[in-house]
Design a protein around this nucleic acid. Structure first.
Lengths: 219, 219, 219, 219
DNA sequence: TATGAATGAGAGTTCATTCAT
DNA sequence: AATGAATGAACTCTCATTCAT
């Protein structure tokens, strides 16, 4: 009560962590269609407890997302801090792809169901560093002139898809395509289609609002 | 009665086609979570009729898959028939990516839910032509020596993912990455990870059997 | 399909009636807090069937209300048709009180949970006849000059309350207070508080929109 | 420890009072469906504390009832003390109606959920004074000969119902009907139905035992 | 003793699938 | 054979009540 926003009791903290971990596991295995009951029981808790910590299933997904996002922020900051822009770019792509490749739930959260507001926050937080990174890489001649900062996220997504195809077998296969993608950014043939504008990226986010709404209502 | 396995009556054939078409439309719009009722009514029929033709929702999805597969077979045959192996390869990648980019339901069917048996059939049908195509392209110096036939399908999948990210906005964005991928196959830096072996591909299929079972029960 | 708005199948019609009857019984016994499951099973049907016929619990309540309203319309028309306005008024009050006294669910629907729109319809349909009835009764000297048409509904409600107090015992006790109320309209002491204006009545309806919304969402 | 049944510690007394007050407020606003959490937090306490003082939600409702009953006892005693029995009767009716009109929760407790035992106590406590009051009023010619003491409570209830109909709008409308009811007791047309016997009143109480049980379990 | 986290039964609602018409 | 009504399991979410801190 003295602390701002009430420091949860010790066991409550533990249970919240258990829930997030359980959600990560269950969602990773079966995707977001897994039920709250499943998540709660995997955590060894009752459903009610899950709902005490997260207003609904979507909020739980967001909590996972939030953790992932923190890691992504860290990666982009590290990348920008790298004096070699190309090395920075590579480390960002590789790092984020690595994160998602192992976690189907995270991929679903990141790709399918976006909290438009939070997504814009993420976008705003990432777009600056990414643009800087790409611009510096262009200036250094490490990246083609027509590459845009929005390409980076899409390249990562494409890499992560590989994990969806192969399931748990060959969970590292995406690395096979990493050099291919990086090379594409560096010196590949000129693309005939323009990159996704940031404006369009924003628009596409709102496309997902419907799915979001649906998820928030019912399963 | 005179016929061995009595061909479906004319209107039954028509209804089956109506259902598949409706399913394609509805699934393309809203994904596989659309209900059987919706599909049936889009076809102007009752649910019962849908179940007369397809044992369950999954079977209906497979029927769509079957049509798509037919088109893929056509594409691979055309590609093989092309005297220029590289041109053939390009046309195959482009053609299959085009097919899926516009159809969310098809992507979901292809990626998320595999009928292991049918999948193996498809694999067996495609692997020969694809291997021939890739080998000839290698021989012609159009493709790097370490490219495998299994890479082709994965490249297509990666391209299709772009459509998932952008939703309806920029439905053609995947084309931006087409040259990048093609270039990766042709001359990109050497990949440090070996391609997915056909054996592994087979194994990864069975990974999806669980999802399959779940879909067949509920949702 | 030829008929406008599809004539329900014979058994569907029967089940709908069973549901309405069951709802009337269950709501009469335990009020609107009874569950849909209870209603459905009382009707010998599954919950799903209840939801096929009524979008939600509130719609089911409205169906009961609709029947009751029809009877009320009949009563008011009969009352207006009576050449003796006082006799008409008495028959209306007595008739409507009789209807509700036996049915707790109906009382709850009528009093607690109003579909604002339908309620206004009812109001609009009743206010004319009631005003005419009251005016003619005043002209005939059968009713005090300060009685308003809105008083009638309230008098009925007050009578019905008696049933709430006594429960199933003495279900006719309300009749004891009927002459008292009628006499109050006819010659009682002058009231010091003005009647509810129709405007206010309308406003008070909207007060119930919240309860309505709540019922429609969750129990 | 020296005391026989150790009086509650001072803050325990204070908390109990806070809870009752909060319950009165919350129930008055939203009715008995308000949650224990809401009540506890309105009181600035945790739910657990609420359950330390009251075994369940119903007991809390009874505590409110108890307070109200105290006020009713006061009113009836004042009424009896009034040398003018009619004036006493009027003050009792008006006073009790006033109490309930403003408090939806109290109405619900009084009407919907009766603790049969406590109710009988109340009945036993009130019936004597009321009977005396009515008898003296009859003797003074202020009340019709066929009025019974049980009529008084019912008249009050009928008046309170008006508040249910109008919601927060016109919270004083019941006063419009007060003279009408009083006049009915004094000189209205002879009722054709006999009053509720005290015996029957007792019986009707038990009708509510079921509802009571339900509340004590859930909702 | 006070707190509020945990629990789990139960309510409303949906939808794949079955079956009577 | 076609229809759409019926079914019931599953899902999300709430809240009275219990219990560990």
């Amino acid at each position: 009560m003295t602390e701002a926003s009430r420091p949860l009791r010790k066991d409550a903290v533990r249970n919240r962590a258990l829930l997030v971990q359980a959600a990560r596991d269950v969602f990773a295995e079966r995707g977001l269609e897994a039920s709250m009951d499943d998540v709660a029981h995997r955590a060894g808790l009752g459903v009610g407890t899950a709902y005490r910590h997260f207003a609904n299933k979507y909020e739980l997904a967001l909590a996972i997302l939030a953790e992932a996002i923190e890691r992504v922020y860290q990666l982009v900051d590290d990348a920008v801090a790298n004096p070699d822009p190309w090395a920075g770019l590579v480390s960002f792509v590789e790092g984020t792809a690595e994160m998602q490749s192992a976690d189907r739930g995270l991929r679903e959260v990141l790709m399918g169901v976006h909290d438009a507001e939070q997504m814009e926050q993420v976008h705003d937080r990432l777009s600056g560093p990414l643009r800087e990174l790409v611009d510096r890489a262009k200036a250094a001649g490490a990246v083609r002139a027509d590459v845009e900062s929005t390409d980076i996220g899409i390249v990562v997504t494409m890499l992560c898809t590989v994990a969806d195809v192969t399931g748990d077998a060959s969970s590292d296969l995406w690395r096979r395509y990493l050099p291919m993608m990086l090379d594409g950014l560096r010196q590949g043939a000129e693309p005939s289609v323009p990159a996704l504008s940031e404006d369009m990226l924003r628009k596409s986010m709102s496309t997902h609002k419907q799915r979001l709404a649906r998820l928030s209502q019912r399963g």
